[in-house]
């Protein structure tokens, strides 16, 4: 039996003239934590909605657990959990009742459901907020409730669609740790985000998409290996004469130099000790600087190099 949990083949989705998904394909294996990374409007949520048969698509095929997914495949839906981008709970039900309500759409047995709900609330750290109504919860707790409602029935495949949007850093860490635990316990995870750090931290396999197209796929290291940049040396230095930039280009492994807002960015491809070469040069030229440090490439660099634009808007 195949271990492939999700197969999307040549998916095309159009909104009138706009092509939201353009021959998009992906494959997710059992137990994987799969990251779908792309800027806002790249087609991540459209992909998820097509996958769940919420959205009709124009072409292509979607299989989940080896079976063709359609709106009537209740047997497949039973095995999926969804944590949507927007908090989807009832304001008139408290934390416990909301979790129980949505769990009840999957689990008939009352006792089993009660146990599952308790476990989900414990997992989400909401046990002490059982009687709270959504309006009384903070943004972070509300997100956690959203997660509890999506995972209480212990699904095999869990889809997280940007679950940390507008969440404070502490809650974000809690959520990410929780998702990692779910993955460790055997659940296959699909995680969409435009926060590269989250995807990098969580996912074993990452697909970068833009304008409905697949840009690149692989592990974080594999993706970074695809690009020229291997290290960036950053120097905070004032009043640097632009004529000197060409001098930096002559240093070993350097292929790009930029100076902006008193910050000198020297991009290197390959080689070791690039920061030492830069520091020695600065000393030799008796140039005073405030700070010097080295950065390894991020997924944003990958995205930037492939598409020519930033992965996410400056916040």
């Amino acid at each position: 039996m195949s271990d492939t949990v999700v197969e999307i083949d040549h998916l095309v989705k159009r909104y009138k003239e706009l092509i939201a998904l353009d021959n998009f394909s992906l494959r997710i294996e059992k137990g994987e934590a799969f990251g779908l990374l792309g800027p806002n409007g790249s087609g991540k949520t459209t992909t998820i909605n097509c996958l769940l048969s919420l959205l009709a698509y124009d072409n292509g095929e979607i299989k989940i657990f080896g079976e063709r997914m359609t709106p009537n495949r209740l047997d497949i839906k039973k095995r999926i959990g969804v944590v949507s981008q927007n908090v989807a709970v009832f304001n008139e039900l408290n934390v416990y009742e909301n979790t129980d309500y949505f769990c009840g759409l999957y689990i008939k047995e009352k006792e089993k459901r009660k146990q599952y709900v308790e476990e989900a609330l414990e997992f989400a750290g909401l046990l002490e907020f059982k009687k709270f109504y959504p309006k009384k919860l903070s943004g972070g707790l509300l997100r956690r409730l959203n997660i509890a409602c999506g995972i209480a029935h212990k699904p095999e495949l869990i889809i997280f669609d940007e679950p940390t949007v507008a969440v404070d850093p502490q809650s974000r860490n809690n959520i990410l740790e929780g998702i990692a635990k779910l993955n460790e316990s055997g659940a296959t995870i699909i995680y969409t985000s435009h926060y590269m750090e989250e995807v990098e931290q969580l996912c074993s396999n990452i697909l970068i998409m833009d304008r409905g197209k697949r840009i690149a796929e692989g592990t974080s290291d594999e993706l970074k290996a695809m690009i020229k940049n291997t290290e960036s040396v950053i120097v905070h230095i004032r009043n640097l004469e632009h004529e000197l930039l060409d001098e930096f280009m002559k240093l070993p492994h350097v292929y790009d130099v930029k100076y902006m807002n008193d910050t000198l960015t020297i991009k290197c491809s390959g080689g070791k000790h690039n920061i030492v070469h830069v520091a020695e040069y600065l000393e030799k030229k008796q140039m005073n600087y405030d700070r010097i440090y080295s950065e390894l490439p991020s997924l944003n660099d990958v995205f930037l190099e492939i598409t020519g634009k930033e992965l996410r808007d400056k916040e």
């Binding site: 769940l52 048969s53 919420l54 209740l74 047997d75 839906k77 039973k78 999926i80 969804v82 949507s84 927007n86 908090v87 989807a88 709970v89 009832f90 949505f102 759409l105 999957y106 409602c149 999506g150």
Partner: peptide
């Protein structure tokens, strides 16, 4: 409204469940 995905977020959640 509570079970149509195009009308509410909870509608979308109900829609992806195996509920008849």
């Amino acid at each position: 409204t509570s079970c149509q995905a195009n009308l509410s977020d909870v509608g979308a959640r109900v829609n992806v469940s195996p509920m008849n």
